[in-house]
C-alpha cells in the first residue's frame, strides 16, 4: 500500500469511510452498554456502578487505546465525508432543474452529509457536556472517592436545571439523526468493503435496520427517563 495514488483513489476513501463507520458502530454498542447503567440501577447503587464504569473507561489502558482509535475514527470519518462531499459537488457543477431522488433512493442515503453534520455538532456539545468535564473539569468526588459523573449527568437532565428541557430535546433529535444515518450507513459499510452475498446481505441489511432503530432509541430513552424521574 506504499503507492499514495491508491490511497487517493475514490475507492480507498470509501474503505476508510466504511471501516471507520463500522468501528464507530462498535463503539456505540460499548458506549450504550455503559449508559444503560443509568437505567438499570438508581440511587447510591446506580451512582457507584456508573462512576466505577466512568473511572474504568478513562483509565484502563486497553480502553485508552480504543478511545484514541475512536477519536481518530470520528476525525477520519468526518474529514473523509467532507472531502467526498466536496468532490461529489464538483462532479456535477450544474444541477438538475427537476430531480426526483425519492423515485430511486432513500432520503437518508441521499442526506448522509447533513445527518453526519448534525451528529458532529451534537458530538462536540456532548463531549463538552460530559467528556470534557470528566477529563478536565472540576467534578466533586462521590462517597466512594470516585469522580461523580453520575451526579453531573443527573443534574444536566434535571428539570431543576433551566436548560435541561432543551438538552433533552436536543439529545433526542440527535439520536433521530443518528438513526437515519445508521439506517443507511450500517449496510452501506459492508457494501463498500465488497462484503456482499446473495444469502447474507439481506441479513446484514435487516441487522442494520434493527441496529439503527434500537441503538439510538435506547440512547434517547436515557435523557427522557432522567428528566421524568427527577420531576
Amino acid at each position: 500500500m506504499s503507492n499514495s495514488g491508491i490511497l487517493k483513489s475514490s475507492l480507498a476513501k470509501k474503505y476508510v469511510m466504511a471501516l471507520t463507520g463500522l468501528f464507530l458502530c462498535l463503539f456505540l454498542v460499548g458506549h450504550l452498554a455503559g449508559n444503560l447503567q443509568l437505567l438499570l440501577k438508581s440511587g447510591a447503587e446506580g451512582q457507584r456502578a456508573f462512576n466505577e464504569y466512568a473511572q474504568f473507561m478513562t483509565t484502563f489502558p486497553l480502553v485508552k487505546i480504543l478511545s484514541y482509535l475512536t477519536y481518530a475514527s470520528v476525525l477520519f470519518h468526518a474529514i473523509d465525508g467532507i472531502v467526498l462531499t466536496m468532490a461529489n459537488r464538483k462532479a456535477r457543477p450544474v444541477g438538475y432543474v427537476n430531480e426526483k431522488g425519492s423515485a430511486n433512493s432513500n432520503w437518508s442515503s441521499r442526506n448522509m452529509g447533513i445527518l453526519g453534520t448534525i451528529i458532529l455538532v451534537f458530538l462536540v456539545s456532548h463531549m463538552q457536556n460530559f467528556w470534557y468535564q470528566m477529563h478536565f473539569g472540576d467534578i466533586p468526588n462521590d462517597p466512594n472517592g470516585l469522580k461523580d459523573l453520575y451526579g453531573v449527568v443527573l443534574k444536566f437532565f434535571s428539570p431543576e436545571n433551566s436548560m435541561s428541557l432543551f438538552a433533552v430535546v436536543g439529545y433526542v433529535l440527535a439520536q433521530g439523526a443518528l438513526a437515519f444515518h445508521l439506517s443507511h450507513g450500517f449496510a452501506s459499510g459492508f457494501q463498500s468493503l465488497g462484503l456482499r452475498h446473495a444469502k447474507y446481505t439481506p441479513v446484514i441489511e435487516w441487522s442494520g435496520k434493527i441496529f439503527s432503530v434500537l441503538v439510538p432509541a435506547l440512547f434517547a430513552i436515557i435523557p427522557i427517563y432522567l428528566y421524568i424521574t427527577q420531576q
Binding site: 475507492l11 433512493s105 442515503s109 448522509m112 443507511h184
Partner: peptide, 29 residues
C-alpha cells in the same frame, strides 16, 4: 472526474438493463 459512490442504489434502480449493486461490491472487493 466522476463522483464517489455513496451506495444510494439509485443507479441500479434507474439502470435500463437492471444491472445490480452486487457488481459494485465485486469491484470494491
Amino acid at each position: 472526474g466522476f463522483g464517489n459512490c455513496t451506495n444510494t442504489g439509485a443507479c441500479a434502480v434507474e439502470c435500463p438493463k437492471g444491472i445490480d449493486l452486487s457488481t459494485i461490491a465485486r469491484m470494491n472487493r
